[in-house]
Computed example of a mutant assay.
Amino acid sequence: MSGEVLLEVADGVAVVTLNAPERRNALTPAMAGELVAALDEADARPEVGAVVVRGVGRSFCAGGDVQTLTDAGRDPAEPGAYADMGAIYDSFLRLGRVQAPTIAAVRGSAVGAGMNLLLAADLRIVARDARLLCGFLKRGMHPGGGHFVLLSRLVGREAAAALALFGEELDGAAAVRLGLAWETHDDDAVEDRAHELAARVARDPELARLAVTSFRTETGPPQLGWEAASQYERPAQMWSMRRSAG
């Protein structure tokens, strides 16, 4: 483990920290694997009744690591490249399946895969000056990871089109207005507020885990399932990556 993902547990709350500020917490396959391992550990500890995901530095998560995307773009169907991209997808899916309620504490920017990561949480608290940008098409890539499902289940079809297809960007106030986040705060208050909410539900971890299972089953992604959407998008994303590497 490189220390690019940290896990701390206290009073029933697990805090998972993305800790690669030199690349703005952009996900490599190895970092994604560390994230999955941290979430596995949180699940294995029955005293954990809530999970907060945060990022160190100027960004929550700047997306997929550029070098990883470039390497995969040369031949996205090559087994190693396919597995590396799959590892990044797996980290979103794993967060969405954590046994306890999850909160994303978002400061700075979240782009592409970083958006998928915060969208995978059950609740979002974002900074007023946060920059939330889907960004896939801007980079010449088709969205991946079930992006359209994750986004539209929160903001609806019209706003999802504006964000994912037409490149609109949100700050904290706009995110709350659209229903993408619960609250927006000054940068230095975001994580404290997320922890306050997490601590509230974590007082009864057994009930929290049972309740969030029902919550996700009853309110989950519409129409095409999330995992199916992730696979449905994948061939188009692979095509766009190969074209960009061209």
Rank of each mutant, 00 (worst) to 15 (best):
D84V: 01
V98A: 15
Y82V: 09
G108L: 04
A110L: 01
S109K: 01
T102A: 06
A83N: 05
R107A: 09
Q99E: 14
D75C: 11
A87F: 03
S91G: 00
E78N: 10
L95C: 07
T102F: 03
Q99I: 10
D84A: 13
A105C: 05
A83E: 13
V111I: 14
A104N: 09
L93E: 10
Q99C: 10
E78A: 15
A87Q: 09
L95R: 09
S91L: 05
A100I: 09
V106Q: 03
D90G: 13
R97S: 12
V106G: 07
A100V: 07
T102S: 14
E78V: 04
A77F: 11
A87E: 08
S109Q: 04
A81M: 02
A105D: 04
P79Y: 01
A81K: 06
R94F: 02
R97N: 14
L93A: 13
Q99S: 15
R94T: 12
F92V: 05
Y89H: 15
Y82L: 14
S109A: 09
S91N: 02
G108N: 01
S91D: 00
A87T: 00
I103G: 07
A104G: 11
S109P: 00
S91H: 04
V98N: 11
A105Y: 03
Q99W: 08
S109N: 00
R94H: 11
M85Y: 05
M85E: 07
S91M: 06
I103M: 05
R107S: 13
D84M: 01
T102K: 06
D75P: 07
A110N: 02
G108D: 05
G80E: 05
L95K: 07
A87R: 12
P101K: 08
D75T: 03
Q99N: 13
